[in-house]
């Protein structure tokens, strides 16, 4: 059983991560629109991202915010729509969060340093 204080903290984490995501998504979309003007190829993307540590840091923040925000939202859906119990919903959220974090960081590493 999670306490009200824990649930309030999780809500706070979700709110802060949504603020970070709002900025990240805008920058991400702006970059995509800018980047696809000359067509899209793996070589062109890697040419822009390889060794670009600003790009890397930005997407690390993006991935971390996703790995906080998405699982909490999915846990809420699991509780309300599927009737999953509180504890199970939080375990599910942690697993999803970890998967997003690992896959996301691996992708960032791949395009920046790999």
């Amino acid at each position: 059983m999670t306490t009200a204080a824990t649930q309030a903290k999780l809500w706070y984490a979700m709110r802060i991560s949504s603020m970070v995501l709002a900025v990240c998504v805008l920058l991400h979309i702006a970059t995509v629109i800018y980047a696809v003007r000359g067509g899209l190829s793996a070589a062109e993307i890697l040419g822009r991202t390889h060794g670009n540590w600003f790009f890397g840091a930005f997407y690390v923040v993006f991935v971390v915010a996703c790995s906080v925000h998405v699982p909490l939202g999915l846990a809420a859906i699991a509780r309300e729509w599927l009737g999953v119990r509180e504890r199970m919903a939080l375990v599910f959220a942690q697993v999803v969060g970890l998967v997003i974090l690992l896959m996301g960081l691996r992708a960032v590493y791949g395009v920046v340093a790999g």
Partner: peptide, 12 residues
Amino acid sequence: LRAVAGDAGCHA
């Protein structure tokens, strides 16, 4: 505040 916080309270 403890009574209204959490998933049975305002955060739902």
